[in-house]
Simulated scan of single mutants.
Amino acid sequence: MKGVLLLNLGSPDSPTPKDVKPYLDEFLMDERVIDVNKVLRNILVRGIILQTRPKKSAEAYSKIWWEEGSPLIVISERFTEKLKKHTSMPVALGMRYGSMTIKNAMQELKDKGVDDVMIVPLYPHYAMSSFETVVVKAMDVQKEFFPNMKLTTLPAFYKNPDYIKVLSESISEALEGFDYDHILFSYHGIPERHIKKSDPTKYHCKIDGSCCFTNSVAHHTCYRHQVYDTTELVKAELGLIEEKVSSSFQSRLAGDPWLKPYTDYEFERFPKEGKKKLAVITPAFVSDCLETLEEIAMEGKEQFLEAGGTDYIHIPCLNDRDSWVELMAKWVNNWERTGTLPHS
């Protein structure tokens, strides 16, 4: 029997340092998030970061926490419930980090008789620290606890024409009536070395401004290429003016070169160039979360306005938008009928 396993990042159980600390420990000790040797990672995470970060992160989570719980979890659950109404297959939701474990989600499917699972990483783009880590974790859990369960993974869908259409429609609706000077596509940042580590050719990815636009097999696992592709495809779909659109990268750790340009630097730069009415979209995420609701919708707005901007909107993620649910249902139901997956 076939079933669907939706996978996302996860969240602390509450916006308190007590619950944030073990969540951050699990997250930051992941070798695909902080990819240094285990001894150094242990010193960095448990000896330094976790001494101060839980309190700061808890304060940030408190700003965006909903009455029902973590926005990421609540939105993911709403999406799951809507998807269930569009398919006859059992659907379960699991998180890479936190108490909503992948193991529990797989057990839920097994208890319903499922032995053939379509894994759906809820990330449009491939990256070590998002797409790859949830897939590897699911495979490890399957191997250890569910050896008779077959897994099939939905590929990164960053340039799927149907996805681009749904994403573009959501952006168009949000921009209605907003006389913007610029639209910024802000993607989650990753260390530059992750790009090179994910390059199967070991020579193509140079992060030199041209490699992302030179065809290569490396693009199948190149986050930088894929996010720029998403921006270009949405720009073409909506007929956006070249000079009014750009991409940037948010969230980074000090001490390492991360993908540039940095979103917060762009917030400072735009008003000086006369771009005082800004719309920001965060397409690395399909569900609004701490990185979109606090870092972009709140902190980003404040920074932009303090730098001299006058108008600012954060365009919501796809969340549980009906057209997004229907597209996912199309993909999973086609897999159930034919065993085939959508093209990226």
Rank of each mutant, 00 (worst) to 15 (best):
V136F: 15
F131G: 05
V141D: 09
S130T: 15
F131S: 03
A127K: 06
F131P: 10
S88T: 02
G98W: 08
T101M: 03
S129D: 10
H125R: 10
Q142L: 00
T101S: 09
L122F: 11
A127C: 14
D115A: 07
P90H: 11
P121S: 03
S129N: 12
L122D: 11
S130A: 14
A92E: 14
E144S: 05
K143V: 03
K137A: 07
S99N: 10
V134S: 01
S129E: 14
P90E: 03
E108V: 12
S99W: 05
D140M: 13
V114R: 07
P121A: 00
H125I: 09
Y123F: 14
K110Q: 13
H125N: 00
L122N: 10
V117D: 13
S130F: 00
S99F: 06
M118K: 04
Y126L: 10
N104K: 14
V141M: 01
K137T: 15
M106C: 07
L93R: 08
P124L: 01
T133M: 15
P90R: 05
D140E: 14
K112L: 13
E108M: 12
M128Y: 06
L93A: 11
A127T: 11
A105Q: 11
M128Q: 10
V134T: 14
Y126P: 07
K137G: 00
V114C: 01
T133A: 07
E108C: 13
M89S: 08
A127E: 09
H125D: 03
Q142V: 08
A92P: 06
M95F: 15
G98V: 06
M106A: 08
I102A: 06
M128S: 15
A92R: 12
A127N: 13
V141P: 11
P121E: 02
M89N: 14
V117F: 05
K143M: 10
K110D: 12
A105S: 12
G98M: 02
K103Q: 12
T133P: 11
D140Y: 12
V117Q: 06
D115V: 06
I119L: 15
V91H: 04
M128P: 09
L93W: 11
V134L: 09
D140G: 11
Q107E: 14
S130N: 07
V114G: 11
M106N: 01
P121H: 02
I102N: 02
E132L: 11
Y123V: 01
Q107K: 14
L109D: 07
D111V: 02
